[in-house]
Design a binder for these strands. Structure first.
Length: 784
DNA sequence: AGCATAAATTTTTTT
DNA sequence: AATTTATGCT
């Protein structure tokens, strides 16, 4: 680093520079490196975000680059926001202006909006989320009767996505198929039509955003040169989870600019031939945390980095600043079982800390009860709820947890899963907004045609679609011209009315405020009014959701005074599960192990650590599946700072039938002395199951209870089953000292009562089951 | 169009 | 088991 032009103070500068303060030698090297290509192998919790932000801050502060010459790619929008904030803290808000810090998808949208006209789209294009794609594919499969050949919507969607991630387009695919295989020919036709429909709708799906940007750069070198010149330094986080298309995008952006594409008045330094040298590249990743192979992430991108970028510098960060040594020992022991990896061992100076707590419940409800009880104890001991997280492999596992959490009055929020924007009423209103912004979007138009009900049935829809084709225009043109179709007077009036609503809204497209556009549509369609007047009790909640959407647009407009409708739609399309995480919410966070990547909590619960769940059943047949599942478990473990809890159930009910579950193979990989196995309270002695004996040891008998468990049924014989029952106790009130009987926990006495009415929470000391907090109104209890 | 009933589908992970 | 979707009926 001594050849730094600005580094006149040399060695002593490291101690005075606030940007270098508190870094270990490896981190210091990573922040200061001037390598053209740099790979930072950052183990979990090794302070990589700190390194990345300081690296960026230093480039800006030392005037090596303008902020606008930096492109930093993160995995989620939330991570992007945090990184921007931290850089701003280091160099000041104004000095950081103009940086691009965003996800691959957001960056590509930004590029595509500018350049869409170059290749047959408009800047108002819409983004199809997975549900939109599936709806379109569903229609195509039906139209072509592809289901008779065994095609399912999800199989087609998966394969198309995979091809796009590999940068294989329709033409490329047609060259590699066997024309005699009717299945392949059919798929090709589906792929072709899907692509054509998207183009006709002026829309991109998620995978297109990346792939089309790459195609754009390859087809128009002068456009590519624009961005190659602009971005002089690329930084990519979570590099282990990039797929081929993203890799190709990085390669395009880090190509040197040929003299032909260098403007005469460039202020960027040119090389001997008059061209501009390639931009610098910094990537950060950890192959042990690669968990997205299923959606095309290619671990070779990181493994072969040094070959891809000759002369690359590689720096290893192994010191962990997050977790206790106990947690790291467990993580190291687990990941060591993946053989084809570069050896890496996390260590910390923090000390060993608490033991890992293990628990085996009888059912998923029993397991959930354990989690709830432990959270109660932790909270009483001073851990705030928002420093506690519960992880699981599949979204379906939230149900049992939620049931028990509600009963135990634990405040929680579920990240991901069924999202706000997936609700029908929200999709309806979003469809209106999309139809206004992009009249070519047939999917959105179809959705709103008869929503709310205005007597436009399938026959009328087809007539309108055909008329649009005749006119050579879009659906909105056909709507305006409805009188020419000679339909009934009532239907015609309804159609013209709808056209007027859309036309009125699109007038304020480039100037109007987003909430105004939405409210205007709501008033003219009477959508909210109809929900309000409905007899269906659920419609009240739907009306509230619609109002929530209005509030969301207001919030958006507040944060983006210049934001237009299209910007709002983009933001909504690209929000991820982890993005709407509000750290100040004061609630326990529930999420999948995938969503947990990049986050950290004082106390972590990993639930459902069972065979067929973690590793998941579906991964068994995938090559490399079990190894990826192990990395997933590793990611989960390394999220914990202080305390880690691993739990499982002996039986699990899925699809309505109950099956015996065996402990995950990964549990055996953790040294037995790190785990403190707990028994269910009120159980007395248990000879089999969940104990250290059953899991530790050296012999072959792997799992004590898997053989002794009566196959199939008698749940009732177990002393401490927790049922999913919910009861309405009306306005039952309890006082301290009252004796009660609980359906699962037996008899106990009330030790305290907090809050009144429906939110009344009683703390009860049970004779056998210990102390529990209960939401009085819905707990299965009776007063004695 | 609206309603009741039957059938199918859900659960791997996500930008 | 629960929820969404298809079908048939008035």
């Amino acid at each position: 680093m001594s050849f730094l032009p600005n580094d006149t103070l040399d060695t002593s500068s490291g101690h005075d520079d606030p940007l270098l303060e508190g870094l270990n030698p490896q981190q210091l090297t990573a922040v200061q490196s001037r390598a053209q290509a740099l790979l930072i192998v950052a183990g979990a919790g090794s302070g990589k975000t700190s390194v990345l932000t300081r690296r960026i801050a230093r480039l800006i502060r030392d005037r090596e680059l303008w902020p606008s010459q930096i492109l930093a790619i993160t995995f989620t929008n939330k991570a992007a926001g945090e990184m921007r904030e931290r850089v701003e803290q280091l160099v000041g808000r104004d000095a950081a202006q103009g940086m691009w810090i965003s996800t691959f998808h957001s960056a590509c949208v930004r590029i595509l909006r500018r350049e869409a006209e170059q290749f047959g789209f408009t800047r108002g294009f819409t983004i199809y989320d997975s549900a939109d794609s599936r709806a379109l594919i569903k229609r195509l499969v039906k139209d072509m009767q592809a289901d008779t050949l065994g095609f399912t919507v999800s199989a087609v969607a998966g394969k198309i996505s995979k091809l796009k991630n590999e940068l294989i387009d329709v033409e490329g695919y047609s060259r590699q198929i066997n024309a005699n295989d009717p299945t392949e020919v059919m798929f090709l036709e589906l792929f072709r039509r899907y692509t054509a429909e998207l183009h006709r709708a002026n829309a991109f799906d998620f995978d297109d955003l990346i792939a089309q940007t790459v195609y754009l750069f390859r087809a128009f070198p002068q456009v590519a040169a624009l961005y190659q010149r602009r971005f002089r330094h690329l930084l990519v986080d979570e590099y282990q989870d990039t797929n081929h298309a993203q890799y190709a995008l990085i390669r395009e952006l880090t190509r040197p600019v040929e003299p032909a594409h260098v403007p005469a008045d460039t202020r960027i330094e040119t090389d001997a031939s008059g061209g501009i040298p390639a931009a610098a590249l910094t990537v950060v990743g950890d192959s042990d945390q690669s968990i997205y192979a299923f959606r095309g992430a290619d671990i070779r991108n990181i493994v072969e980095f040094e070959r891809d970028f000759p002369g690359a510098e590689v720096i290893l960060l192994e010191q962990n600043y997050r977790s206790t040594q106990t947690i790291l020992d467990a993580a190291n022991a687990v990941i060591a079982n993946n053989f084809d990896r570069i050896a890496k061992n996390l260590f910390t100076a923090v000390g060993s800390g608490e033991k890992i707590v293990g628990f085996t419940g009888y059912s998923q409800h029993d397991e959930a009860q354990f989690v709830a009880d432990e959270i109660g104890t932790l909270h009483e001991a001073g851990t705030p709820y928002n420093q506690i997280a519960v992880f699981y492999r599949t979204n379906a596992q939230t149900r049992a947890l939620e049931e028990i959490f509600i009963r135990s009055a634990i405040p929680y929020r579920v990240l991901g899963g069924t999202k706000f924007y997936e609700r029908a009423e929200i999709k309806d209103m979003m469809a209106y907004l999309i139809a206004v912004a992009n009249p070519a979007d047939g999917l959105a138009m179809r959705r709103i045609l008869n929503t709310p009900k205005r007597g436009i049935g399938p026959a009328t829809e087809t007539a309108l679609a055909n008329h649009a084709d005749e006119l050579g225009g879009t659906m909105i043109d056909a709507l305006r011209d409805a009188p020419a179709l000679g339909l009934g007077p009532k239907v015609t009036a309804a159609i013209v009315d709808l056209a007027a609503i859309l036309d009125a809204a699109s007038e304020s497209l480039d100037t109007g405020l987003v909430p105004d556009i939405l409210v205007g549509i709501l008033e003219k369609t009477k959508y909210l009014e109809l929900l309000r007047g409905s007899r269906d009790p659920q419609d009240e909640a739907r009306a509230e959701n619609v109002e929530e959407l209005v509030a969301v647009t207001r919030e958006f407009q507040k944060n983006n005074p210049e934001g237009r409708l299209i910007d709002f739609l983009t933001e909504v399309a690209l929000v991820a599960a982890a993005d709407d995480l509000d750290d100040s919410s004061g609630t326990v966070s529930l999420m999948t192990l995938h969503t947990a990547k990049g986050l950290e909590y004082d106390a972590v619960f990993i639930t459902g650590v069972e065979e067929n769940l973690l590793p998941h059943q579906m991964s068994a047949t995938e090559p490399g599946g079990p190894a990826e599942e192990r990395r997933l478990f590793y990611v989960g473990i390394t999220r914990a700072r202080q305390r880690l809890h691993l739990s499982l159930a002996m039986t699990r009910t899925t699809f309505g039938d109950t099956q015996v579950a065996a402990p995950s193979r990964y549990l055996q990989e953790i040294p037995a002395e790190l785990i403190d196995w707990r028994d269910a309270p009120g159980m007395g002695t248990r000879t089999t199951g969940g104990g250290q004996r059953a899991l530790g040891g050296s012999g072959t008998p792997k799992f004590g209870y898997s053989t002794s468990l009566p196959p199939g049924k008698p749940k009732k014989e177990w002393a401490n089953t927790v049922t999913a029952k919910v009861r309405d106790n009306g306005d039952l009130t309890l006082e301290v000292g009252d004796r009660i009987r609980h359906a699962d926990f037996g008899d106990g006495s009330v030790t305290s009562v907090t809050q009144n009415g429906a939110k009344s929470i009683a703390e009860v000391q049970f004779e056998k089951a210990g102390r529990k907090r209960l939401l009085v109104k819905i707990s299965p209890i009776e007063k004695l």
